[in-house]
Amino acid sequence: MRVKQLAEAAHVTTDTVRFYARKGLLMSTRDPDNGYQHFNQEALRQLRFIQQARTLGFSLQEIEQILHHQHSASSPCPMVRDLLSQRVPKVRQQIEELQTLLHRMENALDRWQEMPDGLPDGHTICRLIEHWDSDQQETSNE
């Protein structure tokens, strides 16, 4: 199948297929007459695998390592488990940081509802932000 057919079968763009092929994650052959790339069913299977791995947060470099294990006939499963077990605490930390940011943003919006708009006067840029004391606001709302 050609690039467009592979992309449609996997529900991705043709640019995605070409990008993964350039990265060496998908193998193709070239038609000597017209130069078109041709992909087989294995490429479709690998493309779907890449999509699934991306939804689990794996980077393209990690996916390349996983595929390398597969091609060398060794199981990538231990590496996959290790990568995710290392990543889970980091994602939890990011979620906590985002929840803190969301709380700070909501507090700012609540407080700013009552504040008048200010015009730049050469001394201020945006008085909403300049008069925001995040430490005071977070401790007063806890």
Rank of each mutant, 00 (worst) to 15 (best):
L44G: 08
P32H: 08
I66D: 01
Q93R: 11
D135R: 03
R111N: 10
I129H: 11
Q41P: 14
T124Y: 13
P120L: 05
F58V: 00
E64Q: 10
E42S: 10
Y20P: 02
P78C: 03
L26M: 02
D135W: 02
F19Y: 14
T100C: 07
D135K: 04
L109H: 12
L119P: 01
R54W: 04
Q113N: 09
F19E: 01
G122F: 12
M115Y: 05
Q86V: 08
H123N: 15
A108G: 15
H68A: 08
I66T: 04
Q51F: 08
D82W: 03
Y20F: 14
H69T: 12
D133L: 09
D82S: 10
V88W: 07
I95W: 07
N107G: 12
A108D: 13
F58K: 00
G118H: 11
L56D: 03
E114K: 10
A21Q: 05
G24S: 09
L128F: 15
Q136A: 13
V91L: 13
Q113L: 10
N40T: 06
D110Y: 13
L128A: 11
L26R: 02
L44A: 13
V80L: 13
E64R: 05
S72C: 07
T100Y: 10
S28V: 01
R81C: 02
A73K: 13
P89M: 03
H123P: 09
L98K: 11
D121N: 12
V91M: 08
H68C: 06
Q136Y: 10
H69V: 09
D110T: 15
I66G: 02
G35Q: 15
I95V: 13
H68R: 08
D135A: 09
D82Q: 11
S59G: 00
T100R: 14
H123K: 15
G118Y: 10
Q41C: 15
I125W: 14
T55S: 14
V88R: 06
R111G: 06
R22E: 15
N107P: 02
R111E: 14
R127N: 07
Q99K: 01
A73R: 11
W132M: 05
M27A: 12
R30S: 06
H69Q: 15
P78K: 03
Y36W: 09
G57V: 09
Q61G: 06
L47F: 08
Y36I: 04
C77Q: 03
S75M: 05
S72H: 04
S59I: 06
Y36V: 02
I50A: 00
L84T: 07
R87H: 12
Q65E: 06
D117G: 13
H131D: 12
Q52N: 03
R111W: 12
W112M: 08
E97I: 04
I95F: 05
E62C: 03
Q61N: 07
G57T: 13
L83Y: 13
I63R: 01
E42A: 12
R111P: 00
E64C: 05
L26N: 02
L47H: 02
R22P: 01
D121K: 04
Q61D: 08
F58W: 02
Y36M: 06
R87C: 06
V91F: 06
